[in-house]
Amino acid sequence: MSKTVQVLLVDDHPTVRAGIRSILNENYIEVVAEADSLADARQALVTSRPNVVLLDLGLGRESGMGAVPEFATASSVLVHTVHSDLASEALSRGALGFVAKTAPVGVLVAAVRAVAAGRRYLDPALAADLAIGPARRPMSSRERQVLELLAAGLTNQQVAGVLSISVRTVESVRASLRNRLGLVDRADLVAYARTAGRTGH
């Protein structure tokens, strides 16, 4: 498999960068440049032309948040940080994705691939609390019911039967959830539902 996704890795901890680089390389994602400061990141962005800027927000005495709009004009920005409470701000400034550093390896890999393809991605552990888009609202009881049944492996028809609603209604709820949570297809939605269930969202 060729490495079609190219990443600029911006983090001020060499050990962290080494670990992330190894993870991404093992998953056929190429780290084409690394930076430990915003100045170096700006230069690398021009010279390496990555698909994705994987950006930590805490860069020593600098904050990567202010650079999100700038970087987003040249590449897809995926914020990767310990500051999970900053997801909404990062997304509003132009980041296409947000993943906490506590997220499993599979979530980070999926996020990089999603934003490289121009799709939004929000860490499933945070997505239940944040709606991506102009209207933030809590998940409705109907949406939670559909999610729970999808996570249990039920088909659209089975979900409709259990909830005594039409298949079209189930499909509409699924589409709404995908748009709100930045998910792509049924597999993503089911994976999110199972993760959200484990984290208590």
Rank of each mutant, 00 (worst) to 15 (best):
M1P: 14
S2M: 10
S2P: 15
T4D: 13
L8A: 04
L8F: 03
L8P: 11
L8M: 05
L9M: 05
V10E: 01
D11Q: 04
D11P: 07
D12E: 11
T15W: 05
V16R: 06
V16H: 03
R17P: 03
A18W: 03
S22A: 13
S22P: 00
N27F: 10
N27A: 13
I29G: 08
I29M: 10
E30C: 02
E30S: 12
V32G: 01
A33G: 11
A35G: 09
D36R: 14
S37G: 07
A41P: 08
A41K: 11
A41Y: 09
Q43C: 03
L45W: 03
V46I: 15
S48H: 09
S48C: 11
S48A: 15
V52M: 08
V52K: 01
L54G: 04
M65D: 02
P69D: 07
P69C: 03
E70T: 11
F71M: 10
L78W: 06
H80S: 02
H83C: 00
L86A: 09
A87R: 05
S88M: 13
S88D: 08
S88N: 03
E89R: 12
S92L: 10
R93L: 14
A95Y: 06
A95G: 04
L96S: 11
V99P: 11
V99S: 08
A100Q: 14
A103G: 08
V105T: 15
V107H: 08
L108W: 07
A110Y: 00
A110H: 12
V112N: 07
V115Q: 07
A116M: 06
A117C: 02
G118S: 10
G118M: 10
Y121W: 13
L122H: 12
D123Y: 09
L126Y: 04
L126K: 08
A127R: 13
A128N: 06
A128T: 10
A128W: 15
I132V: 12
I132E: 01
G133Q: 10
G133R: 12
G133D: 10
P138E: 08
M139R: 08
R142T: 11
R142G: 00
E143K: 07
R144H: 09
Q145N: 12
L149I: 04
L149F: 03
G153Q: 02
T155H: 03
N156R: 10
G161C: 00
I165W: 00
T169K: 09
E171L: 03
E171F: 00
S172D: 12
S172N: 13
V173G: 00
N179T: 09
N179Q: 15
R180G: 00
L181P: 09
G182A: 06
V184L: 12
D185C: 06
R186L: 15
A187R: 15
A187T: 14
Y192S: 07
A193E: 04
A196D: 06
G197C: 03
R198N: 11
T199L: 14
T199Y: 12
G200N: 09
H201Q: 13
H201Y: 09
